[in-house]
Amino acid sequence: MTAALEIQGLRKSFGQTEIIRGIDLSIGRGERHAIIGPNGAGKSTLFNLITARFPLSSGSISLHGRNLQGLAPYQINRLGLSRSFQITNIFPKMSVFENVRCALLWAQGYRYSFWNMVSRSRALTEGAEAILDQINLLQRRDLPAGVLSYAEQRALEIGITIAGGADVIMLDEPTAGMSHSETDYIVGLIRTVTEGKTLVMVEHDMGVVFGLADRISVLVYGEIIATGKPADVRANARVQEAYLGAALEADH
């Protein structure tokens, strides 16, 4: 079985500085994979390279065995990879419902159609409402997305990310800046909406990481120093030294 996401020899430099220094990573289908590491380790950069937000310097990335070299973000999305952003990235002036509906359009085969009325499609309306129900925003349906609370916007961001039915979901710090109860809510949400899908997430909250992930990769200074099951990573001496010891202490 080919891996959902296969990364080989990935490197990225900004000018003289090499941010990603040779990453090899294979994420299996249906796996929940967390990427952790100290600030500035290149976690978000790795995300941006996989989704073609930035061009890579060398190496290769393949999705379900297909090389993503030279593809634009929208083409990668059409192959079944969807992502959220570290900084909330929604359509602030459009209604909450409209945000989700736009996320459904391509997946439902509307493409660049100018001969269908969106409001006449039951599948679109019901699909969008089902997602809103799932992310608990049905009550906020008609509000402009920009006026939602922070946690609600994060939930909407996840809703938009999963709406298109992509089977590889990438979440960049989904619980950043949230209170404990909000974090619990988002984690529960992530657990249900990514059922049966491949999940790749960057996360700082160790409670979330160890509760949710099947496997963990530790990224330090652009290199993966360990990959494995949570217990193995926790026990790894290099990880303890480089990052986890301090992070776990801070968490308690």
Binding site: T51, R53, A72, P73, Y74, N77, R78, S82, R83, F85, N89, I90, F91, P92, K93, M94, E98, C102, A103, L105, W106, A107, Y112, I160, G164
Partner: peptide, 15 residues
């Protein structure tokens, strides 16, 4: 409208 509000996000929705 989506592209007007946030062209980058629209790209990650397949457009």
């Amino acid at each position: 409208n989506a592209v007007r509000d946030n062209p980058e996000r629209a790209e990650f929705l397949g457009y």
